[in-house]
Amino acid sequence: MKLSLTVNETAHELEVAPNALLVEIIRGDLGLTGTHVGCDTSQCGACTVEMDGRAVKSCTVLAGQAQDARVTTIEGLGAPGNLHPMQTAFQAHHALQCGFCTPGMIISAIDLVKRADGRLDEAAVREGLAGNLCRCTGYHNIVEAVLAAAGQM
């Protein structure tokens, strides 16, 4: 099928299989390998991207559902010298170790902060990030980073 979508402000017209997953399109067709795959049961959140203003697990989105969508992946968030406050906070608070969960975690965290409307505490961050697995950090520093970034967004 033909798929038109905008990823990181760039419009794409692609020929994809109808059963292709958004994550496969992002990683494969578009070569944006910052979005990761950590499971096959939509439980880990490593594949999280922003689609039409919401964080979604891109392993659960079929190509057809992404028709005309605006998608932001970790690569579209900010580059060195021009980082998103959440990216900066993750580094400043040592909220990543191996980095594999990080892109999905950052996108989910931004979504959480946006949705919280200024009312975030530790418990809300922990609950809000429960869909993203991290095996390295024990979440302690991730929670710190999100709360710190929330004040700057």
Binding site: L32, T33, G34, T35, T73, I74, E75, L77, G78, A79, P80, L83, Q87, F90, Q91, L96, G99, T102, P103, I106
Partner: peptide, 8 residues
Amino acid sequence: DVRFITGK
């Protein structure tokens, strides 16, 4: 971290 937080 610079490469990990930027998807690189």
